[in-house]
Simulated assay, not measured.
Amino acid sequence: MQRNHSIDTIRGALLLIMTINHFIWITVGWAGIQLITLQPFGQVGAAEGFILVSGLMVGLIYTGADAASNKKKLLTRAKQLYIYHLIAILAVLTIAYCFISFSQPANTFYSELFPGLIGNTVPTLVASFTLLHKPPYFDILPMYVAFLLISPFVISQLKKKRIALVITTSVLLWLGSRYFDLSTLLTLYFAEGAINTGYFSWLAWQLIFVVGICLGYYSRHQPINWFKHPAITFLVSIIALVLFVFQRNIFAQYGIHQGTLYELADKPLLGWLRIFNLFLLVYLFGYIIHRWSQALTFKPLALLGRHSLYVFSWHYVVIFSVAPIALGFFDFQPNITVCLVIVSLLIFVPALIRERNKSPKLVVEKESN
């Protein structure tokens, strides 16, 4: 099926935003640019959008007639991402030890970030290989691997016209996430700092991935005209605008501000307001793409989006390599803005390499035709 470059652009933008935010959080904690990159439209961040769009792409791409082939591709993809995740951990660990050998502040920095990996390396690595332990900021790929593994089952149920069962089960798991804490159970069996089950609850976050699969599946097989009634689009726009205004703390004197909104939009457990806000934005961006299919296309970001999972794996290596330099653990300390530019440019490396390796094949195919 024909690739939509606007969706690739959105995915690329989400990748860039996550990279910027992660780099800032591990270095200076907060920077002015996060007025734009950190939940700019309401109680929704880049991670939620990335997971939903990833589910959407699964529903669009892997729901063809050949179920066996699609299942094999999904499982192969999950295995590939699992390997990338482990390589990223090993690469960051290697980088950390290199910096530590030259700088005592770097030792403190990495030990505080990765107490298990630095202080108790072998058991923590073993736990990482089983995906029980996820170092800080390494949450999304393991979660995505798990979601890819359940995708063939979800797709099979959609093909049997059991969408009500799929959504009901997913919602019940989301509700159940409030009562099941894997971290509390596992910490009894591991040394302090050796286990970190991650920031996100998989039971909660599967909801937006599953909804993404459903949206992608029906977009491909039974398209629904979501934008048939202008009044609905207008209402969604108004509600999204209200949440945007509330997010700006304009009504803080009345007790409506980011803090009170977050109580309803808890991120690790996906509060109902976060999900509601996310779907409002998905609807509005979908409307823009529906009306003007390439309106959101921006080639550099679309490039990132086309190779999103390679870029996401690589971004760990970039941010944890540049962070000690940005923090001045050596004889020089570039301005944080300079470091942000460097980090933002470096995440394009795997996308550019893959495009370059792909180009000769395309040329051969064109010449043979």
Rank of each mutant, 00 (worst) to 15 (best):
L270F: 10
H22A: 14
P135K: 06
T260I: 06
N107Q: 14
P152R: 08
Y217G: 01
I167W: 05
I239G: 08
L113K: 11
W30I: 05
F320Q: 14
L203S: 07
F180Y: 13
V53M: 10
A191E: 14
A91Q: 03
L75D: 09
F332Y: 14
P360S: 10
I213P: 00
H315E: 04
W205N: 05
L296Y: 08
H229P: 06
I167Y: 11
R77S: 06
F298N: 03
F209Q: 01
F180N: 15
V166E: 02
F41S: 00
V341A: 14
A194Q: 01
H290K: 03
W205A: 05
I288S: 13
P350T: 07
R291G: 08
Y283A: 11
A91H: 04
I213C: 01
H257I: 00
H5F: 04
K160T: 11
R162P: 02
V282D: 10
L56P: 11
T19M: 03
V341W: 10
L340H: 04
L270S: 13
S201F: 02
Q34K: 15
G55S: 12
R77E: 03
Y84V: 01
V92M: 07
L149K: 15
A91V: 09
E263W: 13
V210S: 07
G271C: 07
L131M: 12
S359K: 02
S237M: 10
P105R: 05
G212S: 14
G193E: 10
L264H: 15
S69L: 12
S177P: 05
L60R: 03
S170Y: 03
Y84K: 11
S103I: 02
V245S: 15
V92R: 04
